[in-house]
């Protein structure tokens, strides 16, 4: 158990293991996404009230779910980096921020596109939507804060504190539809009690949520790999990797 954590802190091990995982996870994710997108877009029946516009659910909800989960990962990585000064936790935190921002952007944009035919407006300053916009700014804040510091250690500390303080926004997002009068509908899928969505719509939605989680994992590992190489550029293993790539490139 402890040896696993010890290994997690090793940049060459993390680079190598992420490469082996990506080799099979990335193609599976791409196929799963293609299947899920086609399923939701062409093979499900329209909603009896919203018609075909509801098909946006298959990208909107997974993007929002993963945007929130990504924030947990970023904040936990931030806490680990702050408390135990673990360099790879800092790498994970930095890798999460742009992907989380991308998923939050997708959730907001697809929500706006869905809002137009459903509510008659692209945007409303509703509690759920506004708190998701705050989430986007938190992600972008972490990205900007990393770039603002010359000193990497100070940047890491500031970003970790920002991600942890930003955690206050997460329960607000979850509960916004219950706490305030909102145009946004409450949760249709409930872990406890019955879901208010038909199973023929629920299965492709679960499929897409799982695919988006896998996509987040792939994107996070890809970002971490670049960050690891950049931070370890002066070490022997990265030099050997670069020169090995050069000789392979020359042979091919």
């Amino acid at each position: 158990m402890w040896s696993f954590f010890h290994k997690l802190g090793s940049p060459p091990w993390l680079y190598k293991i992420s490469g082996s995982i990506l080799r099979w996870l990335l193609p599976i994710t791409l196929v799963a996404l293609a299947v899920g997108l086609t399923w939701g877009l062409l093979f499900t029946a329209p909603d009896f009230r919203q018609g075909n516009s509801y098909r946006i659910i298959y990208i909107h909800v997974p993007a929002a779910v993963v945007a929130l989960a990504g924030y947990y990962i970023m904040a936990i990585a931030g806490a680990v980096s702050l408390i135990w000064k673990m360099k790879m936790a800092d790498v994970a935190m930095k890798a999460c921020a742009p992907i989380g921002a991308a998923f939050t952007f997708v959730a907001l944009l697809t929500g706006a596109i869905w809002g137009k035919p459903t509510w008659g407006a692209w945007w409303v300053w509703d509690a759920r939507i506004t708190s998701m916009l705050v989430l986007l700014f938190l992600y972008l804040g972490v990205v900007a804060l990393y770039e603002a510091f010359d000193n990497k250690e100070a940047a890491s500390k500031a970003c970790a504190v920002l991600s942890l303080v930003g955690m206050v926004n997460i329960p607000i997002i979850y509960k916004s539809v219950d706490w305030w009068y909102s145009l946004h509908q409450p949760a249709s899928i409930k872990l406890t009690g019955g879901s208010t969505i038909d199973s023929s719509m629920l299965y492709p939605l679960f499929w897409m949520i799982a695919s988006f989680y896998a996509l987040f994992a792939c994107a996070m590992m890809l970002n971490m790999r670049v960050e690891i190489l950049q931070r370890e550029a002066r070490t022997g293993w990265v030099k050997r990797l670069a020169l090995g790539g050069a000789s392979r490139g020359a042979k091919s």
């Binding site: 990335l26 996404l33 997108l37 877009l41 062409l42 329209p46 018609g51 075909n52 516009s53 098909r55 946006i56 990208i59 909107h60 993007a63 742009p98 992907i99 991308a102 952007f105 997708v106 944009l109 697809t110 596109i113 869905w114 137009k116 035919p117 996509l215 792939c218 994107a219 890809l222 970002n223 790999r225 670049v226």
Partner: peptide, 29 residues
Amino acid sequence: ALHMAGHGVYVWSAYLITVAVVAAVLVLP
């Protein structure tokens, strides 16, 4: 399928934008 009873422009644009962002998230790193 393209028209989707008047909702095609919303649904297809949302899907295309998502595909573009997904591609960017994987290709850029």
